[in-house]
């Protein structure tokens, strides 16, 4: 029986029926960051707390990754099975633009300003047969 394990701890709430992206917010200047970090890039304060950034957002920019990246890319794909994927920055309700994989992978499916929703999806299977989960966004219609 395969388990679904977060690819990296602390990026999103998991396991969860309604997962949220996690980030940090500075208690001095209120700026948010993803992933969470102990220092604030805006004001240099070391006073930050972990916060939920939300589970939806607006597409700020996008592209399509058409070729299979070299290492350190580490998926289950081979050059033969590689499927292009979208990449974008999504404006989160938590007040930060997050870079993410997008499930849409053709230009006619993507438009700046689209409403996007967060999905936690299997990314690869590890040596124990467990599914490593990552975050991704898919279209939720016009904003």
């Amino acid at each position: 029986m395969s388990n679904q394990i977060a690819l990296h701890e602390g990026l999103f709430t998991w396991p969860s029926s309604k997962p949220q992206l996690l980030g940090s917010r500075c208690t001095q200047c209120a700026e948010a960051a993803f992933p969470a970090q102990p220092d604030c890039r805006s004001c240099g304060s070391r006073d930050t707390t972990i916060v939920e950034l939300g589970d939806h957002g607006i597409l700020w920019t996008w592209t399509i990754q058409t070729f299979m990246p070299k290492q350190p890319y580490h998926s289950d794909e081979t050059p033969e099975t590689f499927r292009p994927y979208g990449v974008g920055y999504v404006e989160m309700p938590g007040g930060v633009r997050v870079e993410a994989r997008l499930q849409a992978n053709s230009p006619d499916q993507l438009e700046i300003g689209m409403l996007m929703k967060l999905d936690i999806i299997p990314f690869r299977t590890d040596e124990n047969g467990d599914q490593k989960m990552t975050f991704s966004f898919s279209s939720a219609g016009k904003a």
Partner: peptide, 26 residues
């Protein structure tokens, strides 16, 4: 940066320049 960023295919300069250009054109 942590490994997940590279593993999931987000760490490519070509992508960044495309993302920045796409927004700039818009």
């Amino acid at each position: 940066l942590d490994d997940w960023y590279g593993e999931t295919g987000l760490m490519l300069t070509t992508q960044f320049f495309a993302l920045k250009t796409q927004r700039y054109m818009h």
